[in-house]
Design a protein around this nucleic acid. Structure first.
Lengths: 249, 249
DNA sequence: CGTATCCTTGAAGGACTTCAAATGTTGTGG
DNA sequence: CCACAACATTTGAAGTCCTTCAAGGATACG
């Protein structure tokens, strides 16, 4: 399978593509790069000449606060292009790195620009994706700003699960989630210690199982409720209002 | 002065315009609406047919969490188009309302779409603005997720000050900031009580004065330091790296 | 098999919240 | 222009959620 398959699946999770558009996306080319957990792709202050399509694994965007603590701003799943913004914003304002061993396609900006110029509709779809990303950022602000630890972590798990499902990377109520408790803490504004205690509570309440990098959702409805999770903000095709599509629930 | 002047000033704070593009923006038309503090423009679940240009005042985007508490996700200053996203995302995933008496221009989607179609470069500039907005959302996640109350509020004040300055709405080290302490709390994930105590500390430390809806920054450098504020993420023209442009500092 | 990393649990401390009441400010109708 | 109501700010005291510090145990990997 060509490496752009996952991108096509991602785009079709948020919009529709014609055959011609699918072929145009499939012609996108670049360099495949293997990354180890912890490796950075671009850093704050960089001026990238490429954009990165995540093929497999997990990436995170993060910043280091004044106290030295890391805040994860976004988690990225296969099909995402986390540094598309460098097409229009010359200087990176945050870091992008791998939180799990990953494989990416590094696409020269010109490749992407040509695609957008020749297919304005695809440009609009990518813009749309930018807007969805912004909606996810807002939801994260709500998450760390307004929810208690228990609900906050529940919400994060719901989101990752649903996004993986949208690109076909969940197996029923189960998915790969190769995050350490420290990663989860950095994404939710909590300490790894408190994440440990809170995950124990979620397990003891029978909502999830989580071990060896695999998340299993035992009680989707109760987990959603705990996380106050309404997938509307993901703007996925196939979710109508606050209904949950797919095989979940 | 035509009402689109403020939009042109905003666009020129993040990019360059030709005379022809300026004229095209100036031809944007719509309905002028006056809003009182507390009034909503669009709500979660709505499917707007217009986008809103803020002419004067302050708007906020917000969500209500499960506990009933309001989380402000973004503050908008004149020149912003806070619901541009409704051009591409049919359903609103959050609310947009006035936090101060405001005046807006409600522009039919078709008006904006025509502008983008006839001037793709302006489309790219608006996309760029979308990306900057996303950068601001990320910074807010960092703010509420990683910083203590004192630093958090300092950061918010720095950002608002600098954004108002970028569109010419600050008078030296002073600007209108018609926010209640409850508003500030909802934007930073704090209670109004703790905001009150923290603002007192900021005043006592000689960093700011704040009364009757006016903010005066007495010690810009120390306030920046307290807020760990690096304006890079605002991607303003005229700021090089982390340098502070304009009349501040 | 040993070492690094990750997870878990306990105990103490701190930042922020909650509850409550007093004071100050703003806007409006008489 | 005053009086009054509604709203915003301030301060105190008690409580809670989460952090910090510390140490032991499990798991992964060369």
């Amino acid at each position: 399978v060509p490496h752009t398959d996952i991108l096509i699946r991602k785009l079709e999770s948020i919009g529709t593509l014609t055959d011609e558009q699918r072929q145009a996306v499939a012609r996108l080319d670049g360099t495949i790069i293997d990354l180890r957990r912890g490796q950075d792709i671009v850093r704050e202050g960089d001026r990238p000449r490429t954009s990165t399509l995540l093929l497999s694994g997990f990436l995170s965007r993060y910043k280091i606060a004044g106290t030295g603590s890391r805040q994860i701003l976004a988690l990225h799943t296969p099909g995402d292009v986390p540094d598309l913004q460098s097409l229009f914003l010359a200087v990176m304002d945050h870091n992008l790195g791998a939180v799990a061993d990953s494989q990416v396609l590094s696409m020269p900006h010109e490749e992407v620009r040509d695609l957008i110029r020749s297919h304005p509709i695809l440009g609009e779809l990518l813009w749309r994706d930018t807007l969805i990303e912004a909606a996810i950022f807002r939801e994260w602000t709500l998450n760390v700003g307004s929810r208690a630890a228990y609900n906050r972590i529940a919400h994060l798990l719901c989101e990752v699960m649903m996004r993986l499902q949208a690109v076909g990377l969940a197996q029923g109520n189960r998915c790969d989630l190769p995050l350490t408790q420290e990663d989860i803490g950095d994404a939710t504004g909590l300490t790894n210690v408190h994440v440990s205690r809170t995950l124990r509570d979620l397990r003891q309440d029978g909502l999830i199982e989580m071990a060896r990098g695999t998340l299993t959702v035992l009680e989707w409805e109760r987990l959603k409720e705990a996380g106050e999770f309404d997938p509307l903000y993901l703007h996925l095709r196939g979710t109508r209002g606050s209904a949950v599509g797919g095989t979940l629930g």
